[in-house]
Computed example of a mutant assay.
Amino acid sequence: MKDQIDRPGDGRLVHAPADHPPVARPRIGILVANLGTPDGYDYWPMRRYLSEFLSDKRVIDYPSWKWQPLLQLIILSKRPFTSGANYRSIWNHEEGESPLMTITKAQVAKLREAAAARFGDGVMVEFCMRYGNPSTASVVRRMVAAGCEKILFLPLYPQYAGATSATANDEFFRALMDEKRQPAVRTTPEYFDHPLYIEALAQSVERAYAGLDQKPDVLVASYHGMPKRYLMEGDPYHCQCQKTSRLLRERLGWGEGAIDTTFQSVFGPEEWLRPYTVEHVAELAKAGKKRIAVISPAFSADCIETLEEIQGEIREAFEHAGGESFTYIPCLNDDDAHIAALMAVITDNLSGWIARQM
């Protein structure tokens, strides 16, 4: 054990022969993962990204012989143009990247600072994307090369779903298959009911409402959708979304009916979880609810689904139906309360691996 820990500055083990390859100082890695982003909004970057995403069996589980010809020959001949236009409308042109990438970098910068303060310099914090870059495999390789003998993997999805948390874990485990010396690993469970996560959501609502002249008639909690069939097959996502809304309502001290739970981003011919956000906000407007606010508790960072879909299609549906005031409450992003919640999840899951610095 002494040989494994006591390493000189040049990367050699103390008692190793002169020709032994350099060995990095042992560290603990924290790897956070988000969905992903295209490298650009032109046709080919969009096509590569969409092909990877829509070929994931966790996302669309149709038989390949049936789905791939439809995807490659029809869907991907047109969709990269429309999706690219949507991305272009929200693109961070100054940094040359999507808002999701910009926000994730900011989140990780704060997590690095918090981890260093709490655990010292023996911890490495990085991020990867399930689809696109930086790929999970490339970041795992870099962390192992940097000496990470233990890695905690944190998918940035508060609620568990097979199409988000599970596929991120799948990709992480696939990356480990290529490592000669696999690190010890842990994956974090969903954290939708963590008190600090709920507190961060509640604070974001309170801040938004404090800046309004008149309180909205209803708060719509819009979660990413999934086929209803997945719920019937055992995916807990729907139930966890419902509980998130309830816990948020209780923390805010509001009565029943003050928060509506809906689902967005419907794709394909199947029935998805209902009610659909785009239809529900129109129904609210027609029913006389002229002022609404929308929050997206399933997204850890603002992205195409929030910046373009909610503030575009969903807002337009509400206003077209007679709605007068539409307030979008941003995702938690790199808000300090969000970082505190993530650090609490990280600390809980590092138990036994590392001691907090005093």
Results as ranks from 00 to 15, higher is better:
Leu247Tyr: 12
Arg130Asp: 13
Pro216Ile: 01
Val278Phe: 04
Ile295Glu: 01
Leu156Thr: 00
Met343Pro: 05
Glu190Ile: 09
Cys128Trp: 02
Arg186Ile: 11
Ser204Gln: 13
Phe173Thr: 06
Gly122Asn: 12
Glu308Gly: 02
Glu233Ser: 09
Val59Asn: 08
Asp334Glu: 15
Thr37Val: 05
Ser325His: 14
Pro17His: 09
Ile304Phe: 08
Glu309Cys: 07
Val14Lys: 12
Gly322Glu: 07
Ala293Ile: 02
Val294His: 02
Arg112Lys: 14
Lys289Glu: 13
Cys239Leu: 15
Asp42Met: 08
Ala293Thr: 05
Ala33Trp: 02
Leu247Val: 00
His238Glu: 03
Ala175Thr: 07
Leu154Ala: 07
Leu350Gly: 10
Tyr223Gln: 01
Asp335Lys: 12
Pro38Ala: 08
Trp65Ile: 08
Ser77Pro: 05
Leu100Trp: 03
Ser204Phe: 02
Gly322Phe: 04
Lys290Gln: 10
Met1Asp: 13
Trp67Val: 00
Val205Asn: 00
Trp353Ser: 07
Asn86Met: 12
Tyr160Met: 06
Val32Leu: 12
Val218His: 07
Asn133His: 13
Arg249Thr: 01
Arg181Trp: 12
Asn86Trp: 00
Thr262Glu: 04
Phe119Arg: 08
His238Ile: 00
Pro275Gln: 06
Thr327Trp: 03
Thr102Gly: 14
Phe153Asn: 03
Tyr131Asp: 04
Leu201Val: 09
Lys289Ile: 00
Gly255Asn: 13
Gln4Arg: 13
Lys180Trp: 14
Ala116Leu: 14
Ser265Thr: 10
Thr277Gln: 02
Ile304Glu: 03
Leu307Met: 06
Phe318Ile: 05
Glu319Ser: 11
Arg141Cys: 00
Gly268Gln: 07
Asp193Glu: 08
Lys286Val: 01
Ala344His: 10
Glu308Pro: 01
Ala317Gln: 06
Arg48Thr: 10
Tyr157Gln: 05
Gly234Ser: 09
Gly9Leu: 13
Tyr237Arg: 03
Ser296Cys: 14
Gly84Cys: 01
Arg291Ala: 07
Gln242Leu: 08
Ala115Trp: 05
Ala200Ile: 03
Cys148Lys: 03
Gln214His: 15
Gln264Trp: 06
Arg130Gln: 13
Ser138Met: 10
Thr261Arg: 01
Ala33Asp: 10
Ala106Cys: 06
His320Ser: 13
Glu190Lys: 14
Glu199Phe: 09
Ile90Thr: 08
Glu324Asp: 11
Arg207Val: 12
Pro8Val: 13
Val123Cys: 13
Leu156Trp: 06
Pro8Met: 14
Ala33Val: 14
Thr104Phe: 04
Tyr223Pro: 01
Arg356Trp: 01
Thr262Arg: 02
Ser222Val: 04
Lys290Ser: 12
Asp178Gln: 11
Gly36Tyr: 09
Ile354Gly: 12
Val144Gln: 03
Gly253Ser: 04
Ala344Leu: 08
Asn92Lys: 08
Lys66Asp: 06
Gly312Glu: 02
Glu256Trp: 09
Glu113Asp: 15
Pro269Thr: 11
Ala106Tyr: 03
Tyr223Asn: 01
Leu201Ala: 10
Ser89Phe: 01
Ile292Asn: 02
Arg246Cys: 09
Leu111Asn: 03
Arg27Cys: 12
Gly147Ala: 09
Gln203Glu: 14
Val278Asp: 10
Ile310Ser: 04
Thr104Gly: 07
Arg181Leu: 13
Ala137Thr: 06
Ala145Thr: 07
Pro195Gly: 08
His15Met: 13
Ala16Tyr: 11
